[in-house]
Simulated scan of single mutants.
Amino acid sequence: MSEQDTAAVVDTTDDEQHLAPTDATDNPAATDDADDLDGDDEVRDEADIAADYIEELLDICDLDGDIEIEERAGRVYLTVTDDDSALRVLAKPDTVTALQELTRIAVQAETGEFSRLILDIGGSRDARATELQRLVDTAVERIEAGSTTAALPPMSSYERKLVHDLVAEKGFHSESEGEGRDRHTVITR
């Protein structure tokens, strides 16, 4: 896979398009999962709205999936899994990023608050984390071979944060540069 193939789509939270979320009472499974969240009502509301939205999208696509909800440091993480590979059509990085943004917009339309939720479909986040690790390893190898810097392709703020953590673990320095869709990470010694 080339570097161009592994580039992520940048968050597009400025988009105004959205699909209407369903009423939280229509999806008891998502509500039950959301009850596992801590006592923060805003986080629970965000999780309920997002889970209902994703459930409706899965229904429209005639796909089955289990939705798991987790809260970490005030951020909602939605994971969609299934027993077979039917979700693989939605698990492509560009598709997951687009669905994540649509879900964030649906939450914002309902609550009036910006959503920072993270969506994972069929293990796509783990697969992307593995790709990011390979990109960082390759960049560090270039620096160790004599390059002064190594720039990675543009990626979302969430992915840049993961890259910054990976780079720091290797004892190198990284900074985000550029604006909008061109925002990327540069690694130095």
Results as ranks from 00 to 15, higher is better:
129 A>Y: 14
148 T>G: 08
110 E>H: 10
108 Q>R: 15
90 L>F: 04
139 A>L: 12
128 R>G: 02
105 I>F: 09
160 R>A: 10
119 L>E: 04
129 A>D: 10
165 D>T: 13
150 A>L: 14
165 D>F: 11
99 L>S: 00
99 L>Y: 13
163 V>L: 01
135 L>T: 00
153 P>C: 11
133 Q>N: 06
122 G>N: 10
95 T>Q: 02
119 L>Y: 05
93 P>N: 07
106 A>S: 01
97 T>L: 06
139 A>T: 11
111 T>S: 15
164 H>G: 04
121 I>E: 04
140 V>G: 03
127 A>T: 13
165 D>M: 15
128 R>A: 06
150 A>G: 09
155 M>H: 05
98 A>W: 12
141 E>F: 06
111 T>P: 04
95 T>H: 02
131 E>I: 07
156 S>A: 12
138 T>K: 11
136 V>N: 05
97 T>H: 04
104 R>H: 05
112 G>K: 14
123 G>C: 10
96 V>E: 02
122 G>Y: 13
100 Q>K: 00
149 T>V: 14
107 V>K: 00
153 P>W: 08
166 L>R: 04
110 E>W: 12
158 Y>E: 06
127 A>H: 06
127 A>Q: 12
164 H>A: 07
156 S>F: 09
113 E>C: 05
89 V>L: 10
125 R>Q: 08
123 G>R: 09
138 T>L: 13
103 T>F: 11
159 E>L: 10
119 L>D: 01
126 D>E: 11
160 R>Q: 08
101 E>F: 11
119 L>T: 06
105 I>M: 15
